[in-house]
């Protein structure tokens, strides 16, 4: 049971990092990224290729993941950040699918659908199964903390104010002389780097990655964490991701309880449930469980 809980908490951690990345891109900046799974996959494969094919240590793979994630984020955002909201969403979704197709078809590099086995681990060898599970949870928790601090600091910093202004209406910060494009690029690339870092850690945790791990369904789960928790609120993201994981995992126990529910139908039921929850939340509580903290307005200078 403890082992199960540790594993669940570890997966919650990956969700949280992804949700924080999305909160930076969408929650703060208003950039629709449906391609989060693509950056996550890119980080995982970059890291795996560096350590397994390149024979380098984990840290090199981790660093490579961040570099590749950042570059991909810059490229995607640079090419498409000028697109209006929904078209950016489609372009990013396209990016994620193309990453998945490459992973699926270029098996000389990615081992394709059979899966990429990963030996290298970031934790010392010789630990017991249990100890290494705990150690891994610690590492993921560390990544969560780092990601949380980064995104939270950006949110409260002057940059966060500019990003929110971009989200509300790009023309306003542009009129105030802010380079909107540059800010969007930064926010998107940083979010992509965070997702890739999570991907790297994930790859070395599951030790076998295949394109199936990085589907749009994953991205939808992350989106739901954000929406349910409270878009724009980093604490809400923690709550949302945990809740989503509890729903996803908890509904597993329905097998056997409800007659006639095989594994495939059960998984269908869970995903349909996520869909219903998203619709209900957006309609009845669009601000999520923990609404975005009210922005402190700067007191206008007297006589301005």
């Amino acid at each position: 049971m403890t082992a199960y809980l540790v594993a669940i908490l570890t997966s919650v951690g990956f969700y949280v990092v992804l949700a924080l990345a999305l909160n930076l891109q969408w929650g703060l900046t208003g950039m629709l990224n449906f391609g989060l799974a693509g950056f996550y996959a890119l980080g995982a494969y970059a890291s795996a290729i560096t350590t397994e094919l390149g024979g380098m240590p984990f840290l090199a793979g981790f660093a490579m993941a961040i570099v590749v994630g950042t570059l991909a984020g810059l490229a995607v955002a640079g090419l498409s950040a000028r697109l209006v909201g929904d078209f950016l969403a489609i372009a990013t979704l396209g990016f994620a699918e193309i990453v998945r197709f490459l992973a699926l078809n270029e098996d000389w590099l990615t081992r394709g659908p059979r899966g990429f086995p990963i030996e290298t681990r970031p934790i010392p060898e010789g630990l017991s199964r249990e100890a290494s599970a705990w150690a891994y949870l610690g590492l993921v928790a560390l990544l969560v903390v780092v990601a949380f601090v980064i995104v939270e600091r950006i949110r409260t910093a002057p940059m966060g104010r500019v990003l929110r202004a971009i989200r509300e209406d790009e023309l306003v910060p542009a009129a105030l002389g802010k380079d909107v494009f540059r800010f969007k690029l930064k926010a998107f690339a940083l979010g992509a780097a965070l997702a890739a870092a999570a991907g790297s850690l994930y790859a070395h945790w599951v030790q076998n990655i295949s394109p199936d791990h990085f589907t749009t369904a994953l991205a939808i789960g992350v989106w739901m964490s954000l929406i349910v928790g409270g878009t724009g609120n980093n604490r809400g993201v923690l709550v949302g991701a945990t809740l989503v994981m509890v729903i996803l995992e908890g509904s597993r126990f329905l097998t056997g309880v409800v007659p006639g529910l095989d594994a495939e139908r059960l998984s269908a039921l869970r995903i349909a449930l996520i869909g219903v929850l998203i619709i209900v939340t957006v309609r009845f509580r669009p601000e999520g469980l923990l609404p975005e903290p009210r922005i402190r307005l700067e007191t206008p200078a007297k006589g301005a």
């Binding site: 909201g85 969403a89 495939e264 139908r265 269908a268 996520i274 869909g275 619709i279 957006v282 669009p286």
Partner: peptide
């Protein structure tokens, strides 16, 4: 009910609708 909410929200909701329809069929 969300007609005033803007394209991004509706796009997201439509993906949720897609998930519900697809998985209701699978069910």
């Amino acid at each position: 009910p969300l007609r005033a909410a803007g394209g991004a929200t509706l796009l997201l909701v439509s993906i949720a609708v897609a998930l519900v329809v697809e998985n209701a069929l699978r069910l």
